[in-house]
Design a protein around this nucleic acid. Structure first.
Lengths: 118, 118
DNA sequence: GGTTGACCTGGAGCGCACTCCAGGTCGGAG
DNA sequence: CTCCGACCTGGAGTGCGCTCCAGGTCAACC
């Protein structure tokens, strides 16, 4: 399995070392493997997972949302219903967010037109 | 000209009284007229302006961006070129933001599909 | 074995955008 | 005139999401 040193994991995920450690500390992923000396070794799986986290974060989820998400994924004793629900809630939120931004885009276009024609 | 009491201005702009005062203090709009006793009277114009601010904020501009924007609008001695440029920069940013969120939406859909089929 | 740069920890600090507060004032209804 | 709820001020506090720091360890290379 491919493994990454912290610097490379950072580069691949686009997160700083600090943020990577921060997310791990919050339990958003990991725990990450270590060398005997204690240095982190990120696996392919870790990196992919963080990719999902970044994506959800881009979708506007806060840290606590992400924690809930992880929690749901971890105790899947009760099936995936909850996870799906959570995802769908956020899908809806994201979509309305996009709608809002699209409105903003139009307003911006209007303003540009307005200020362009002096 | 239509005028609004603080509470009504708050309702119309969707901002709290505190935020309205905060924006005014930062010079994002106003200064707002007062009664002889010192209570604020928001005009139609104020409310519309704040609407634009909210829109730009939705577009992802930070407070300092908004301040720069106001600055440019205020000393228009050198024409509107700068304003247009600023708006266009942010239009571009907003668009890429929307693109990013659209990607996130797709990922979310994938995940929903994945976790739905057990 | 020595050097050097990447990495470790726990905890403090930061920037943003509000939000809340105490203590006081305004002004319309009765 | 009295009451009371809406409003005023300056400044402190909050929550989020990192980011930085000191003081030390690790590990690859010469």
């Amino acid at each position: 399995m491919t493994a990454y040193a912290p610097a490379e994991a950072s580069e691949r995920t686009g997160l700083s070392l600090d943020t990577l450690r921060y997310y791990e500390r919050l339990g958003l992923f990991g725990p990450v493997e270590r060398t005997p000396g204690g240095q982190r070794i990120y696996t392919e799986h870790d990196v992919a997972w963080v990719g999902l986290l970044v994506c959800l974060r881009n979708a506007g989820l806060g840290i606590t949302d992400l924690q809930r998400f992880m929690g749901k994924l971890r105790d899947r004793a009760n099936g995936n219903g909850d996870v799906v629900e959570l995802l769908q809630d956020n899908r809806a939120r994201l979509q309305s967010e996009i709608a809002k931004m699209t409105v903003a885009l139009n307003v911006l276009d209007d303003k540009i037109a307005y200020y362009s024609k002096h």
